[in-house]
């Protein structure tokens, strides 16, 4: 049982670490600031979630779990808003011109 749990931890944490690496790579490789922001918010939140998931079996009391989950929820909340906030702050000045053609070509109206 313990071995299974340990294996689960190793797998989840490793996968989480891979996503962190992906976030960093995106941050370094993507061509513009906004694309980098995509990499950051999406990959890192997933990475953090996986790390939390992996750590759950390692916490002595099952009641310690929920603290970890609280951390993840809060990180998700602030990650989602902070990403949007930064996007608004770092968008290049010409963003309005870029959207000038009007509604996107395949915009669906419902």
């Amino acid at each position: 049982m313990s071995l299974t749990l340990d294996l689960f931890t190793v797998a989840a944490v490793s996968l989480g670490a891979v996503f962190f690496l992906a976030g960093t790579l995106g941050l370094l490789r993507f061509p513009d600031t906004l694309s980098r922001l995509h990499a950051l918010t999406k990959a890192d939140n997933l990475g953090l979630g996986l790390v939390v998931l992996g750590l759950l079996p390692q916490v002595a009391s099952p009641l310690g779990w929920i603290g970890l989950i609280a951390v993840w929820l809060l990180a998700l909340l602030s990650g989602a808003t902070a990403g949007q906030l930064l996007a608004g702050a770092v968008r290049p000045p010409e963003w309005a011109r870029l959207t000038a053609p009007g509604p996107g070509k395949d915009t669906a109206d419902d």
């Binding site: 976030g23 950051l40 890192d44 990475g47 953090l48 790390v51 750590l55 990650g79």
Partner: peptide, 15 residues
């Protein structure tokens, strides 16, 4: 962005 990465990564590392 790097500071933000440090924030999320820091959370994970601290956990």
């Amino acid at each position: 962005l790097a500071a933000q990465l440090l924030g999320t990564g820091g959370v994970a590392a601290m956990l």
